[in-house]
Design a protein around this nucleic acid. Sequence first.
DNA 1: AATGAATGAGCCTTCATTCAT
DNA 2: CATGAATGAAGGCTCATTCAT
Lengths: 191, 191, 191, 191
Amino acid sequence: MSSTPKSSQKKDNLVEIAGDLFYYQGFAATGIKQIIEKAGIAKGTFYSHFESKEELGIAWLQKYYDLWQTILDDLNTSDKSPRQKILSLFDTLTEWMNTHDYRGCVFLNTLAELPKPTGEMRKIIRTHKENLRNYIYELTQAHFPDKPKDFSKHKADVIYLFFESALVESQNFREPWPIEVARKETEHTLS
Amino acid sequence: MSSTPKSSQKKDNLVEIAGDLFYYQGFAATGIKQIIEKAGIAKGTFYSHFESKEELGIAWLQKYYDLWQTILDDLNTSDKSPRQKILSLFDTLTEWMNTHDYRGCVFLNTLAELPKPTGEMRKIIRTHKENLRNYIYELTQAHFPDKPKDFSKHKADVIYLFFESALVESQNFREPWPIEVARKETEHTLS
Amino acid sequence: MSSTPKSSQKKDNLVEIAGDLFYYQGFAATGIKQIIEKAGIAKGTFYSHFESKEELGIAWLQKYYDLWQTILDDLNTSDKSPRQKILSLFDTLTEWMNTHDYRGCVFLNTLAELPKPTGEMRKIIRTHKENLRNYIYELTQAHFPDKPKDFSKHKADVIYLFFESALVESQNFREPWPIEVARKETEHTLS
Amino acid sequence: MSSTPKSSQKKDNLVEIAGDLFYYQGFAATGIKQIIEKAGIAKGTFYSHFESKEELGIAWLQKYYDLWQTILDDLNTSDKSPRQKILSLFDTLTEWMNTHDYRGCVFLNTLAELPKPTGEMRKIIRTHKENLRNYIYELTQAHFPDKPKDFSKHKADVIYLFFESALVESQNFREPWPIEVARKETEHTLS
DNA sequence: AATGAATGAGCCTTCATTCAT
DNA sequence: CATGAATGAAGGCTCATTCAT
């Protein structure tokens, strides 16, 4: 679930184009027709690259999964303190909001569309969020080196919940305050 | 936006039936055909009650909007302390999860499906969440009577964010820990 | 499996139109598009009458099933002798060939298209042929009243096989000789 | 129409693989994609061997045409009596049924799928059946050396019809009785 | 009110075939 | 020879909505 083994440029391009539509219109609400028209290819061509719409959806989520892994990895190898690393997550979110027509979290929005708790797409979503939660946990452990694990675990969960609500509520209100509040409170949690 | 003026029983029944499908399958993913079949009526009959699918969606969200208003009003007129009232919100959530096949928050899931920030459905969602946020604000003010308004406002936002993430993450993980953590931290926030 | 309870004229008309196409092109080779274009209706209209293409196929086979039952019933109530009744089957076949662009037996051709031995269409086919076989059996019993049942049963099977090969081979060779030979031999079988 | 002049092993392999699919799913119902996937080759590779799907269908029928010719030739050069040779045809059929998931006669099933009485595939089918009919005719002539040709010709047709109905009806009923009855009656015809 | 036939664009997917590499 | 991307019509079917009865 980490990296794409054989990366065709055409496929990547399709994921890019479709991903935009999925993000701004929803996965189900976006038709193959719309995707191929925007990509300028024939229907059959699309299906020579992807076996199904779901496979495209998986590739799309996988791309964001990988992107987030890269963000977290890069952050981890930086010379920031654990505390700064955690707060950087909120800064990343703010930056994203300022540079995109923010429509919320790719994963959470798609989660809302998927009724059944099974399936590959759903699995990627859950794994991504588990990774994020674990990532924060490792940082809280590093930040509170003398505290018991339970303490850090709880702190991590609190921060994780703040981050998630920042994602969702900035989408709902289309205002930056949820991120600001969540960031501020995270600071306080780490003090 | 508060109560249905003329409530036909048939309409209510349709909203009930459709609401179940909307909640468990998504608004867009649920077709009129499925609704009328489950309701045992003809297509024309449905459209004599509702002008469009969106109007049904509005009635559905309105119903939950009203339901939440009732919950909050009842809670408000109870003899509980402001602190207990806030914590009751999380208990309500836990009870809901235990008695339903939890698929997340009606409003947030639908939010994820609606691309444009305009439209009546979107408005109901945002207003509902604003109401909830204000409600918590009133309670934090009552809980911290000697503190300045900004203090209570910030506390309310923190608690609101906890509540929202509890909604979303219990859906994602299908586990009760997000609610427990959010409730516990809310308790701490109020101390 | 005997008679259509609620007969809509529109449905019957669709079965008629589609049936012609099915017969001359094959069931699988005939598309819904072709059917609705010939019928002059929209796609959705078709699907308001039939839930699926298979349901149309079933109605089509059922129609011929019923037609054959009527033919056999009428023949049975006629004042012909059992021998004459049996031979009439071949005359019916000859008449059919002379008045239609003969493309073989509706049932046997469709049988060849259906891989799996299950399904409603396949069931109608088998039942129709069983009925025909039993029908002939009853007539051979009446024709040989003093003979044991096994004798008549065997005679019936022989005649049934002649009839079936007459159907198939007149399709293959597009000549009348298979019917003539089968009829002549059936006469001999009954002597 | 007798033997493949230049036989490439790859082509033969493709015919083998495709033939299985054609037989069990039908010619039209089997797609090129399925064939190449089962063969493990690319689409272009397939079309470098065969100009079209029809050419593959022709090669497939031709293969069975040749196979039958071999069976008949081998039978002819055996030391069996004409009567035994004819009855062997039914035994061959029984053996085939017992060793294969019987789906009927390759030629007759394909005949049912082909609407137009023209075309190469249709020609192979008709020729094969003509050959079979003539083959039986030669044997009946040998069996009744003192009888006039018309007599033997009629006998041959009767036996041919029995054989054909044995093919079709054992497919329809999925039982051995049609072959048994046809064989027994053929014995009687030759007495 | 209630019915359900009618619409036609749209859904995702497969088809046989071509052709540049 | 082999590859697989490209084509676009066609596959069966669903969509929300309208309207004559």
